[in-house]
Amino acid sequence: MADEIRAEMVANVWKVVASAGDTVDEGDTLVILESMKMEIPVLAEGAGTLKQIAVNEGDVVQEGDLIAVIE
């Protein structure tokens, strides 16, 4: 079963740290968002293989937007 990681707020995608195909552990940083001059890491919620990164650096995400999928 795949875990979908979604944005919790409106933010800019400052840095994409992980790539599709990477093996990740719970708590690994996938993407770093920037909002109101604060950096907010988006963490893997479980271990698995990163199937998809749905954002690119410079994108603006809205609350609920898909960021990544982990299988």
Rank of each mutant, 00 (worst) to 15 (best):
V42G: 05
I5M: 07
I40G: 03
I70A: 05
G64M: 07
A2S: 06
G46W: 00
D28H: 09
G46C: 12
D65S: 02
K51L: 15
W14H: 15
A11G: 02
E26M: 10
A7S: 15
D3W: 11
I5E: 05
K37M: 06
I67F: 11
L66H: 02
L33S: 12
N12G: 08
V17M: 14
W14R: 14
A20S: 15
E39F: 12
M1V: 09
K15P: 04
A7W: 04
D25W: 04
V17Q: 13
K51Q: 14
A11P: 04
L30H: 07
K51T: 11
L33R: 05
V55H: 03
A68V: 09
A68M: 07
Q52D: 02
L33M: 14
V69D: 14
I32F: 11
I67Q: 08
M9C: 01
V17C: 14
E4V: 09
N12F: 10
I5A: 03
L30D: 11
I53D: 12
L66N: 08
G21E: 11
V61I: 01
D25P: 00
K51F: 01
P41C: 14
L33F: 04
A20H: 06
D59Y: 03
I40L: 13
A7C: 04
A18F: 02
M9H: 01
G27C: 10
D28A: 14
A54L: 05
A47S: 15
Q62W: 00
V17T: 15
L50S: 12
V10M: 07
V55Q: 01
T23D: 13
V31F: 03
G21F: 07
N56M: 08
I5G: 02
T23V: 14
A2E: 12
A7F: 01
V31C: 13
G58C: 02
I53W: 04
V17E: 15
A7D: 03
E26F: 06
D3Y: 07
E34P: 04
I70G: 03
N12P: 01
W14G: 12
I70D: 13
L43A: 13
V42Q: 01
E4S: 08
W14V: 12
G58H: 02
E57T: 11
I70L: 09
L50I: 13
A54P: 03
V69G: 09
M38D: 03
L50D: 12
L30W: 10
V60A: 13
I32R: 05
D59T: 05
E63H: 10
V31E: 06
V31A: 06
V60T: 15
K37C: 07
G21V: 09
R6W: 06
N12E: 14
L30M: 07
T49Q: 04
Q52F: 01
I70Y: 06
M36P: 09
D65F: 01
V13K: 09
E45H: 11
K51V: 14
Q62H: 10
N56H: 14
A47P: 12
G48K: 13
A54K: 08
E26S: 13
D25N: 15
G27K: 10
S35L: 00
L66T: 07
P41D: 11
A54Q: 05
A2C: 00
W14T: 12
G46H: 04
L43Y: 14
G46F: 00
A18L: 08
L50G: 13
E45I: 02
N12Q: 14
V31S: 02
M1H: 08
